[in-house]
Design a protein around this nucleic acid. Sequence first.
DNA 1: TATTAAAATACAATCGATTGTATTTTAATA
DNA 2: TATTAAAATACAATCGATTGTATTTTAATA
Lengths: 341, 341
Amino acid sequence: MDTNEVTIHHIAEILGINSSTVSRALNNSPRVTQKTKDKVLKKATELGYQRNHLASNLRKSKTFTLGVIVPRISRHFFASAIAGIEETAFKAGYNVIICQSLESLEREQSIINTLLANRVDGVLISISMETKNYDHLKGLKQRSIPFVFFDRHCNISGNSKVVIDDFDAAFKATEHLIKKKSTEIAHFSGPQNLEIYKNRFLGYKAALEKYSVPFREELVITSSLMEHDGAENVKKMLALPYKVDGLFCANDVVAIGAIQYLKSVHVKIPEDIAIVGFSNETTSSVIEPALTTINQSGLEIGNVATSLLLQKISNESKKNSNETIIVKTNLIERKSSLRKV
Amino acid sequence: MDTNEVTIHHIAEILGINSSTVSRALNNSPRVTQKTKDKVLKKATELGYQRNHLASNLRKSKTFTLGVIVPRISRHFFASAIAGIEETAFKAGYNVIICQSLESLEREQSIINTLLANRVDGVLISISMETKNYDHLKGLKQRSIPFVFFDRHCNISGNSKVVIDDFDAAFKATEHLIKKKSTEIAHFSGPQNLEIYKNRFLGYKAALEKYSVPFREELVITSSLMEHDGAENVKKMLALPYKVDGLFCANDVVAIGAIQYLKSVHVKIPEDIAIVGFSNETTSSVIEPALTTINQSGLEIGNVATSLLLQKISNESKKNSNETIIVKTNLIERKSSLRKV
DNA sequence: TATTAAAATACAATCGATTGTATTTTAATA
DNA sequence: TATTAAAATACAATCGATTGTATTTTAATA
């Protein structure tokens, strides 16, 4: 037993005072005189006292643990978001349980049950592509466990979220293609149950309208935006009776798949087709030509979402608020769209 | 108070038995008759009982929490390792605290202190590039908190680690370059306090010796292997009085930096210089030419390291064992080294 | 049926910190 | 100095589960 096992009782005994006073002194309670506080703090440092969070949390019936659900940890955006979440949570004395839905609704549901069993104080979630049923999220609400969406959110009543302005970002991306003299612009879209993809599509459409570029239903190709979808989508696109000269992809992964396939069939980028992606994955600056894309800071989104969740947890009146915080994005112009005009 | 708050005492009261019996029944103790167990289990399910881990852990004076220290979460290899760690830990009922050292020794030391304050049951660590002083790790040992290195380890006595055979992988990578008719092979190495880089260097050297390719001190260029080091290293390399025609990089990141710079100065890859990297980052298959590299499964390393740590935690006799588990790697041949021979 | 050993269950303390209430100490006032 | 209010501290219960020991119940044997 050479492990650290100093408790408030040891300190109390040594100082000849009661452990409740020690506890209050360590928590800086106004009920304890400064003189006693000094004595206690000095002795605590001397003995290397460290509060036992298990005991403390049990008494407070809080776990100081947050649940985080992401589609996939190894996606760069989510890894960055997790870094931000850990950072903010850690500073506030919270731990984090990280879970991957792997884009499966079933897994997402089972994760929520496990998080409930672990009595997390709150949940941060970026929903899976399959998530069209929201009963599991309503379950969280019933148990009055606050949660905040980040990035991939959904439209259930009374929720808070930290997102980017997908509409606006998509608008700018499309506008950029138009200014680079694209006249037939395709869009590789994602599952429409996810608001982010719906909004990216709407931003794309709005930009076409504003600049009177014809909108064609067939040029919007929906998939689950994996790398292999890139090639598939391009094949469909090239089979259409339009000479596509611009492509806005709802994420970088599908854009990269598309670029690789287009290169293999000797379509020139950006001369024949200018391309813009979305997310700024690490691969995007490496591929040739480097991919023009929307940069979104996972770190910032993670930080902000966690702050918001912590507010909900500690502030009863905010518990059921529905706030939306929008994090700034910017367009990074790279070679894949820089056609000489 | 509509939250779940069923305790063993509620179950005990309803069934008219003592809570200790309920506890033993739920833990499947041989001291309780099967009949009672059935009764308790049925009622527990009926009431939606869920064990309060805080209380349980407090009594057992275990936190069921593991600390994980990685240089950077967003590196693909570490993100994968974390996925593996979470997976295995979660199955065993453990939570995980993830921390980033950001390659700083100071941060690494402070993280260990925080993990100690959080009374983690064990630690998984991949050390920073700056880590040349191991007092903080000895601190863990003194407190008899088991820890396991993964990937980046160091040579302190009596430790366990889950690693790849860096020597062998580097040997194969270099051998591959030699078989592709490289005769002047450079090596971009990393900080020599990290065993992995030392071993990769030794594997490189051994391959040269075996095939009687001259080893030249100046062709080994050491840096912190960031992307920008790639260009710097290449400049130094090209200034040397040797016609380098092969390059083995100790990681993919520096290899990618090198490729990009070489392309900018019109050196042909693989014709002029054949290149092999190490780690199989996601970018490596996307860069052009795609990078030949050593594939190491972060997921598997994370899984295995966590299993080993959990063994140490639960098995007193294994606590001070020093095991080394080697996870398989393989060479992925891509265009960056496929020179026609 | 009475006795006894074994099996099953109940009792009570415990993990360490927190917190409402009771008691003691201090300081202010008559 | 006696009285009283306020400040400081002590007491004791509590969070929920676990576990060593004591007691009761069951079943086996004479």
